[in-house]
Design a protein around this nucleic acid. Sequence first.
DNA 1: CAGTGAGCGAGCTTCCGCTTGACTT
Length: 772
Amino acid sequence: MVENLVIVESPAKAKTIEKFLGKGYVVTSSFGHIRDLSKKDFGIDITNNYTPNYQISADKKKVVTELKKLAKEAKTVWLASDEDREGEAIAWHLYEVLQLDEKNTRRIVFHEITKEAILKAIENPRKIDTNLVNAQQARRVLDRLVGFELSPVLWKKVKPSLSAGRVQSVAVRILVEREREIIAFNPKSAFRVLAQFNKADGKTIDLKAELNTRFDESKEAESFLTICKQAAYKVSDISKKPTKRTPAPPFTTSTLQQEASRKFGFSVSQTMTLAQRLYEAGKITYMRTDSVNLSDAAIGAISNEITTEFGENYLKVRRFKTKSKGAQEAHEAIRPAYINKASITGNVNEKKLYELIWKRTIASQMSDAELEKTTILIDIEGSKHQFVAQGEMIKFDGFLKVYMESTDDEEEDSGKNLLPIIQSGQKLDYQTITATQKYTLNPPRYTEASLVRKLEELGIGRPSTYAPTISTIQNRGYVVKEDRTGKERVFQQITLKENKITKLEKTEIFGNEKSKLFPTDIGMVVNDYLLEHFPNIMDLNFTAEVEKQFDDIAEGEMVWYQMIDEFYRPFHERIDGALEIVGRKSGERQLGTDPKTGKPIIVKIGRYGPMAQIGDNEDTEKPQYAALRRDQHIETITIEEALELFKLPRDLGMFEDKKVDTSIGRFGPYVRHNNKFYSLKKGVDDPYTVELARAIELIEEKRITDQNKSIAVFPGPDGEIQLLNGRFGAYIAYNKQNYRIPKDKIAKELTLEQCLEIIKNTSVKPARKKGK
DNA sequence: CAGTGAGCGAGCTTCCGCTTGACTT
């Protein structure tokens, strides 16, 4: 007989709490939600006040049986899920499913896992807050209605298996809009002038300064440098201004994802997997949180650590306030479980992430850094402009001793260098003065982490869904994360050195992208379609607005199904309206006419992806088709590039009485002969120019490697059993399956019997899931 | 593995938020 059964959401949390409570308490966990809307036929009775049809999730059946058993044995059941909308609903579902008795059920909540907080919670039980539960039901039902009515529209109007939802569709919209800003971006250039001074009153110094003006035209820059040739330079003013810098608050899920991305290049899901491991090992507090709050106990421990490690003057206790919209603050900020542990054992990445969390937590309770910003103004004889040198000196490092937050901007040499000691009125000599043509930068593309930040700013999504959302939009093919190499462009540089002006044309690479999110053609077409027919769902403020209503429901000022009804009726009308319009949305774009045939040339999304087409479908003559290449996009492809596509496949001639042709396929450029494919060599061969002789060379080369590929062939019951040399060593190929050869066997010496044995002992792989 | 782009029809896809493992490469 168990006296008290406490149910929390996470097993790791249960373990910790059990230690605090000791005898008489069994602490267990529900593993999150135990029930959800039925997957079939909506799970909502629309005609009956939107009554939800809840079902115990397949993977929770075991948990529920176990919990039922424990609850039956216990005298008192304590529902200790999180104190937010979802947590309240979890408590209510437990209450319903476990068929608990109100008399021996207590609802308790705490925001931090400390002994004091939990004992206090036990002393102050309450009842389940039905209004809060209803707010959650409204949230859940709304998301189901939106997701399960919009997605089928996309299946019919754009492409099967697509999806839409309150969160994911807005996330894609943000990326599409940024991409279009970038496409439309028109860089402007101006000449930035930098001077390097090497003498002050004849004494050697090292001082870099930038002109306080930029010149639009190279002529202006040149005539300025001509003035500089003759000019005398004088320090006209030195000013010093004290400034300070304040530490960032402790980590939340989204800020942790951002910093781990900026500092270590971790993907959002990578960070979460690492954090989960640290949490389960008891090394950090809960990793899915929107709170920047630290418990009193933690602040005490941090203060201790700072005073002993760095001294009293480095300590400044701070309480941070959450700024983000819709934060529910059921937990603490993400911090080390034991503050005095500056590092841990574990793999390299776990260590890195832990140390980052430790530093950020400690720094958040440290003094401001005090800086002195120095500005030196330099007069130029014969010019109204001035050179400006700026420097920053740290007078007291404060929190910078342990931690410095990174920014997203790829910083140029911002001139915050160390300045030499110099006096006002001193005469300066230049070493070089350089005017460089600088182009304005397009708005930056999003990384996974910066998209999460944007979503959080808008109050869209929750800490537990940021990583899954980022995966979903990639899995649906709306977005790809990739590197793209930039383009070259020419810029001018005019240099004054030793009284001579020289002009140079240089090239730079711009627009290099690493691990950035790019919307795909499908992403753009779906976005435009949804925006056209469902602008309210696509509104960046849609979530914020329904959240207000959920709050009203939670306050008991609104009936949840009435709120849903007001949303649903006009929404469903739009669904019907969209379905009535015939035809599909293919994102078709006219490029012009084909000079050869005079027929229209278009690009659009076809059955198998983005394609170009010459001629109409209605035309008596069948149109010509060509798939776009991976790096080509409906929105940006030019007519010239599209016409290039139709030059392939190219016939090269005959070889061994069979046709040889060349083209570009899914895996790159190839030569085809007798129904066999031979890859062209990257960086060597080009399908537009490759000739028959070279193609034959490639064919013969491949034949030789293929000859060496086969080690032995045996007859098997379902065709040949082949022993082959592969990329990863020898393997067995039989009946369209590959089999690994055990390490203790040598491939060459295998007999038919041994091969059959290996095949028999290998568990057949389950059918691969189709799609990506 | 590298193609395809007409049409029909069966059967499937899909949301967001709570939680962990169980998967594969």
